[in-house]
Design a protein around this nucleic acid. Structure first.
Lengths: 345, 345
DNA sequence: TCAAGCACTGCAAACGTTACCAATTCTGTT
DNA sequence: AACAGAATTGGTAACGTTTGCAGTGCTTGA
């Protein structure tokens, strides 16, 4: 085995180029205060030695680390993984790197947040878990921006980016009503989950405005595997709903399968609307009508907020709602051509 | 806005506890060379100040950073995201953190690898992209372990962890033959993709041993969206295959949809076998027979290898094959009870 | 009582980098 | 030719931590 070679440092480069280490440092910076000639020499020497600045040592003297932590739960929904992917990619674009800080179950995000702090991250994006006020306060005091994805926490001065859940749910409700559904049910996560709550409320408020209400609710689920039994339960009761709005597409897919198992025809006997627009929703076997929650704008808003904060913006706090878009496919009857919605499939 | 507070350092703790910074450092280390009384004082002071050691400063003096980079492509397959998730979680378990280094398309992984090096990562797991020998050599010289997931590179002394692709493909082939398929096709990625190649070869070798051969091949695809058109193409030709082995489940799902669009009955007219066993394969709508590539053992092998290397193991290189398991579901005819395979659904 | 040994403690150097400051060289103007 | 000012350069301190070394006080055995 070859002897592990020590990594070239700024001093090695300085020695080879015949200049001071300051000159080397400056050559790798914004290029000011170095003559072209020196810079060329330095870069050549660095190339020879295979030198690359140590990002960690850099951060010690006050520079940013370039690390951004993402506190995230289990990546079981395709939406989550697309989100992680898009965020990581987007961050590379602004010279930052994603440090993954997974938390499990409904456990507090605090552990993940504190771990992130040990690495002097420039900012943290929280997409899962609940956060104690103490930890949030700590981040505020230390000047580390905290961005909440998919949830709003009032008062703590934390920036939040999330879907226009109520608006999306309203669109879903209107579509269901338009296509003639009268008995509309909701399936969601329950237990005070934030997006779930907003979506359920959005559905309910829209129905009530028209003198209706949610006829049935099922909860404590978030996965396709969970959608199936809940769908079975809801659909084999006496007052079977003829329209179901699901908190997300994964659940909706489970419900579709349950409906099929029961011999129901979609959309004739049952209309289903999901939320997110995961790739599977467009699959031939499901053709799920859904409220699309576009990932790119979400990630863009997060990265932008993050950069604003790091640039020193100090407005109190910002809640960005990402507009949703109704995508009508096969699981809702097409009674009329909907206005302002996209139709595909 | 509250003035950003400086983070407490070891000196602040030392001052408050009335001891030297060495004592503080030692109190946070393995606990040797500190009296119980001192340690208690230090820990109390640290608690008061909310002190946590700076992981980055630590790494400057030679300690490990605790960072492990994962070079990964677009997380479009559920398999990929489950892998990332499991790896991140597993690393937390051994006190390490995942730094995501995404690369796009078929671009070289070199960029991602070099970026990782800037952060003094303890090791790198490469799951996507191709690697130049120069970069691999550089890692070797610097003593940073490199672990390849899903591919084997000979000679470079790099540890590799991947599925027993040939064995899995052979199982798929045998199952297809056993259920009476004679015209068997393959759909994969092509362009010399490693796993694709091994799986195709595994299928072909098994067929040839029985005097048959692959009757048709389609390639340049890896997604469910890609599976559909390829399936259409393959299934509407003159000599329609009655069995298709797909490089992964996502493709297989696309193929199933194509078959349905063409009015073919599964498994009577067409048998389909996938690879990976993503959650969707078990879904009611697909019931896909597949070669399961278990994620937990894969991740465990990676983490174990990584720890061995970091502990100084210097055997030349190690290729770990993760055994696969045939999961028989609805997309293959059940002619007989298969021996040594699991049946579900 | 004394020496030897031990447990504990603090000092200071080192890690790789940046930024301030002072010193030097260059450029252009009179 | 002399000077002001700008551009460039090197020296040095600082960032937060660990660690080797040397010192301190305490215990123990003779």
């Amino acid at each position: 085995m070859v002897l592990p070679m020590k990594r070239a440092t700024i001093k090695d480069v300085a020695a080879l180029a015949g200049v001071s280490s300051s000159a080397v440092s400056r050559s790798f910076g914004d290029g000011t205060h170095v003559s072209k000639a020196t810079r060329r020499k330095v870069l050549a020497a660095a190339e020879t030695l295979g030198y690359r600045p140590n990002a960690l040592a850099r951060s010690l003297v006050g520079a940013r680390t370039g690390l951004v932590a993402l506190v995230v739960g289990r990546l079981r929904s395709p939406f989550d993984s697309l989100f992680v992917d898009a965020l990581a990619e987007s961050l590379i674009g602004v010279g930052k790197h994603l440090l993954l800080s997974p938390v499990r179950g409904d456990q507090r995000a605090d552990d993940g947040l504190m771990r992130a702090l040990d690495y002097q991250v420039d900012a943290v994006v929280v997409a899962a878990g609940t956060m104690s006020p103490e930890v949030a306060d700590r981040f505020a005091r230390m000047g580390v921006p905290l961005i909440l994805s998919g949830r709003v926490v009032d008062g703590a001065g934390i920036d939040c980016v999330l879907a226009d859940n109520a608006g999306g749910a309203a669109k879903a409700a209107e579509l269901l009503l338009r296509t003639g559904c009268k008995r509309i049910a909701y399936i969601g996560r329950g237990h005070g989950a934030f997006s779930d709550d907003e979506r359920r409320r959005g559905l309910r408020d829209t129905l009530r405005r028209l003198g209706l209400d949610i006829v049935a609710e099922a909860r404590a689920a978030v996965d396709r595997e969970d959608g199936h039994p809940l769908g079975m339960e809801l659909l084999s009761g006496p007052d079977r709903p003829n329209g179901i709005f699901c908190m997300n597409d994964a659940l909706a897919v489970g419900v579709i399968e349950a409906a099929r198992d029961l011999g129901l025809r979609l959309p004739e006997d049952l209309a289903v609307v999901g939320f997110d627009d995961i790739p599977l929703a467009a699959a031939g076997s499901y053709q799920l009508t859904t409220v699309a929650y576009p990932i790119q704008p979400t990630v863009a808003a997060i990265v932008e907020t993050l950069e604003d904060r790091l640039a020193g913006a100090d407005w109190p706090s910002r809640v960005i709602r990402i507009p949703t878009r109704l995508v009508v496919r096969g699981t809702t009857r097409r009674l009329e051509r909907a206005v302002g919605t996209r139709t595909e499939g």
